[in-house]
Simulated scan of single mutants.
Amino acid sequence: MKKTKIVQSYWSKAYKNSLNYGWAFRETHYMSWALSCLQLKQFYNEVELVTDSEGAEFLVNKLHLPYTSCKTTLDKLTDENTAIWALGKIAAYEEQQVPFIHVDGDIYIWKPFPKRIENAAILAQNIEKNYPFNINLLNEMHEKKFSFPFPLSSGDMCETNMGIVGGHDLEFFRGYCSFVYSFLDTNRDKLEKLASGVSSINTIMEQYLMHEYAKRCGKKVEYLISSLPNTEMYKLTLFSLLPRDVSFIHNIGSNKKREITSDRLARLLYCAYPEYYAHISNLLKQKTI
């Protein structure tokens, strides 16, 4: 049976909004993408990159990452607000024509995804429940008259972490993408009013709407990690547990800004792929990246 296609997306203009691309050091951004892609290629024959022209130049032509195909679909986002970085991922989901697993560039795997994930109609990383920041943001959006295509629940606020996401139900993903675009278009005039800035809309737009849309469609989401309390999310970032105790790392949130994270990631790349480590180091010395 043919392996599910892996997809990664890279909207270059959105990444430039963050100092050092969100990491402690800009070189870690380069090394993260290299390690993520190379580890995926260890287990999957087809790893597609959906990006823009600048991203293709960076990841394929400069870093020489071995993607099996590269599409510059995200050039169509030229006129979009780059603070809404989730649009790059949504556009990548939308164009898929065969079953897929989208994997973020800060995720590294040490074995294939389980068959239940590869064969799922809809899959994602895990459920996040009652994050205080997002609860407050949702309340603020309600107060500022944001329009939602469904009544807001008074119960737990659940979101779907989409570090990995995909599946065989392509019709669901087309509907989900339309759902997100409709929400965004209806509320564009209110985004600048958010106290924490336009970028705060991303997790609501991507993760909260995903969970709500699946629930309202009566669809089951197969989660890679079935139960993970908010207080234990940090365990996904522990390089020290590789490869014996864990086979999946996701560098979430503020962990990227820790210098020790950059050091450990660089060491991993150096040990596993010394030629890529050397290549990136040379590019940095030559100031071509």
Rank of each mutant, 00 (worst) to 15 (best):
Q8E: 12
W11G: 05
Y15H: 15
K16M: 10
K16P: 06
R26D: 15
T28F: 02
S32N: 07
S32V: 01
W33V: 06
L35Q: 05
L40W: 02
K41V: 00
F43I: 06
N45W: 02
V47T: 02
L49K: 01
P66H: 01
T68F: 08
T68W: 04
S69L: 05
K71N: 05
K76R: 13
A86V: 14
A86L: 15
A91N: 10
A92M: 05
Q96D: 11
Q97F: 14
I109F: 01
W110S: 06
W110P: 03
R116Y: 13
E118H: 04
I122A: 08
N126L: 06
E128R: 06
P132M: 05
N134I: 13
N134D: 11
P149S: 11
P149Q: 09
S153K: 13
G163D: 11
G163S: 11
H168M: 12
R174V: 13
C177D: 02
F179T: 02
F183M: 09
R188T: 12
D189H: 12
S196V: 03
S200D: 09
H211G: 06
E212R: 11
K215V: 13
R216L: 11
R216E: 00
C217K: 07
C217W: 03
K220E: 03
E222F: 03
L224E: 02
L228K: 02
L228G: 04
P229H: 05
M233P: 02
K235Y: 08
K256C: 04
D263F: 13
L268V: 09
P274K: 04
E275C: 12
L284S: 05
